[in-house]
């Protein structure tokens, strides 16, 4: 039926329009420009065609051709889901993510896990930090007690060790929930995203301590659709999606520093390093809990451990403490 008609892909992102404007649209626009009509990617934001919870199976069946998401948001039925949204302290800097995937073997594990369920893992590489944005200031771990916080499931499971009450709400309801006091804060993103999506307008304080390692952004495709692409288009898809990761790296990296220094909507607070060490220690225990769940998870946790040890030994500028 297709004949000479251009190949069309429908890509749905987990991101809403405000965020997607930055983290995916430029890459898709570049792709369409370079592809010169041989192929066109149509971009859809969160929940546009199918709800994010159904995104994975829609891609698996081919209703959606490709997806940008973390493993967690789209509820992927794989062993690696737990590492998608803020697996605590797994990585510290944005470059840790591509390093782990390209050089430390995570790419292979992800590719294998997703191939098992009929999905092509194209790439990973985007990074977000995870900080608290709250109505009331947090200056010590005790201030976390009883705070109702919107966060990712994995981060929530971990943070509940410090008295945080994780609350799950539809993403669109967060702003209002903060205004009505139903939520005390969010632990969902860095300050760049807080300003971009408007949460900075409805919270007052930003905790500089980075609660968990990183959010990891991926691109996936339906396996058949991927295999049908000629090689040069596969290559173009890879390169352009990498440019999305790259955009996010500098956009976030620059934004985090600039808004901490120049931002006027939120006051910064910090928990002292000595106290914060308790959280890091708890994260290591949490890693072991997760590793005990399966062989694949144990393999990934061991890579995280080895990677972080190497970074510690390498010293500055890789790690300062």
């Amino acid at each position: 039926v297709l004949g000479q008609a251009p190949i069309k892909w429908r890509l749905q992102t987990y991101a809403g329009a405000a965020l997607g404007e930055h983290v995916v649209k430029p890459a898709v626009d570049s792709f369409n420009k370079i592809a010169q009509g041989q192929m066109e990617i149509e971009l859809y934001y969160a929940d546009q065609l199918v709800p994010t919870g159904e995104l994975f199976q829609a891609m698996q069946r081919g209703t959606i051709d490709a997806v940008q998401s973390d493993d967690d948001s789209m509820a992927s039925p794989t062993e690696v889901t737990v590492f998608g949204g803020y697996f605590p302290f797994a990585s510290r800097y944005s470059l840790d993510v591509p390093a782990l995937f390209h050089d430390w073997g995570l790419n292979e594990i992800w590719a294998e896990e997703y191939a098992k369920v009929g999905v092509k893992h194209i790439s990973a590489g985007a990074w977000d930090p995870c900080n608290f944005a709250t109505k009331d200031p947090i200056n010590s771990l005790a201030d976390l007690q009883g705070k109702r916080i919107f966060t990712f499931p994995t981060a929530g499971r971990f943070l509940s060790k410090f008295g945080v009450v994780p609350v799950t709400l539809p993403w669109e309801d967060i702003e209002v929930a903060l205004q009505t006091g139903e939520l005390d804060g969010v632990a969902w993103s860095g300050i760049t995203e807080d300003y971009t999506v408007g949460w900075a307008d409805v919270t007052n304080y930003f905790l500089t301590n980075n609660i968990s390692g990183a959010w990891i952004g991926h691109f996936f495709a339906n396996m058949d659709r991927w295999n049908e692409l000629p090689e040069h288009l596969q290559e173009l898809v890879r390169v352009c999606f990498d440019s999305s990761h790259y955009y996010r790296l500098h956009w976030y990296w620059a934004g985090e520093a600039r808004l901490r220094v120049e931002g006027t909507k939120m006051k910064l607070t910090s928990i002292p390093d000595e106290e914060w060490a308790q959280v890091e220690a708890a994260a290591r225990e949490f890693w072991d809990e997760i590793a005990a769940e399966s062989e694949t998870k144990a393999r990934i946790v061991s890579i995280f451990k080895a990677y972080n040890e190497t970074m510690d030994k390498a010293g500055r500028p890789y790690r300062y403490t």
Binding site: G53, E54, Q57, Q60, S73, A75, P77, V117, G156, T168
Partner: peptide, 19 residues
């Protein structure tokens, strides 16, 4: 039916704490 079959096959859970 397709969606239910998927939910059974992969043990799909609802996002959130309760799951």
């Amino acid at each position: 039916i397709e969606s239910t079959a998927y939910a059974i096959e992969y043990g799909e859970k609802r996002r959130g704490l309760w799951q």
